[in-house]
């Protein structure tokens, strides 16, 4: 059943995806409202799907696909929060494709890749998953904002008057969205890594720092911290911030992909 709901959600997100492509070329008040409603409806289905997964038992919860589904849901939540605060749907240009992709992969089929290792502290594990995914979602959004920032900056610098009317909010508003997501995501990411370490310690009694997953996660966290620091200390934005954000996202993706190579963080099949 959870998969069925997820596919309903996917259909709704598809409208969001179309919006994301259309919004790049022209702006339509009506379409952005439609996309917003579709996305909200998708979130409802998505939530139902997640609740069913959760109720169905601990083991399924830790599958890769459910993880992706959860990440997609959290990204949408961030998007909605931003909409509530700034009344802009433009981060959707980046968020919708990411969410659609994640949901799509998750909705393809049951593929319960499970943690084979017995985990003794289930509470910690759940905390770890939710925290780290919230961090990821914030990162995705911040990354999206930095791309939009570049886009808007280019529009303003090109001085092409025709592109003046656009779907993008003001440069400083985009900047604020990015920075706030970044700030918000950082503690989640940090706490997520800490809880993850706790799970690893209690399960294995040690942490192998040379394990690809651990290594890449640490790298990601360091870049994340550098990003927050440069922004806070010298107000890096625009190209430099986008560069750092891209790097962090790549590190995050690598850390995610490392699931398949990691001996410790095992979704062994």
């Amino acid at each position: 059943m959870s998969l069925l709901w997820l596919r309903f959600a996917l259909a709704c997100y598809f409208i969001g995806l179309v919006y994301a492509f259309v919004a790049l070329s022209r702006t339509s008040e009506l379409f952005s409202r439609i996309a917003l409603h579709a996305a909200s409806l998708g979130m409802v289905f998505h939530f139902v799907s997640l609740v069913e997964v959760f109720l169905s038992g601990q083991v399924v919860w830790v599958s890769v696909h459910n993880g992706e589904s959860l990440l997609a849901f959290l990204s949408m939540t961030f998007f909605m929060v931003i909409y509530a605060v700034y009344q802009t749907t433009s981060p959707g240009v980046v968020v919708f494709p990411v969410v659609f992709f994640l949901t799509f992969v998750a909705a393809i089929g049951e593929q319960p890749v499970l943690l084979t290792q017995f985990v003794s502290h289930k509470g910690w594990l759940i905390a770890h998953i939710i925290l780290i995914f919230t961090g990821y979602a914030a990162l995705v959004l911040s990354f999206g904002a930095s791309l939009l920032y570049l886009l808007q900056e280019r529009r303003l610098k090109s001085k092409k008057p025709t592109s003046m009317i656009s779907f993008l909010p003001a440069l400083e508003v985009i900047d604020q969205i990015g920075y706030r997501s970044l700030l918000l995501g950082f503690p989640f990411m940090t706490l997520g890594l800490i809880t993850g370490s706790v799970v690893a310690l209690t399960t294995y009694g040690r942490i192998d720092f040379l394990d690809p997953k651990i290594l890449l996660s640490l790298l990601m966290w360091v870049v994340y911290m550098v990003m927050v620091f440069t922004r806070w200390n010298s107000g890096w934005r625009g190209r430099r911030a986008a560069f750092l954000a891209t790097f962090t996202v790549v590190a995050a993706l690598a850390a995610w992909a490392a699931n398949y190579f990691s001996a410790m963080h095992r979704f062994a099949s």
Partner: peptide, 20 residues
């Protein structure tokens, strides 16, 4: 809806950059 004087275009651009 669009500005057609130098001064109002300047304001419009400033708003594109700073928001408020």
């Amino acid at each position: 809806s669009s500005s057609v004087s130098i001064a109002s275009v300047a304001v419009e651009l400033a708003k594109k950059i700073f928001g408020t």
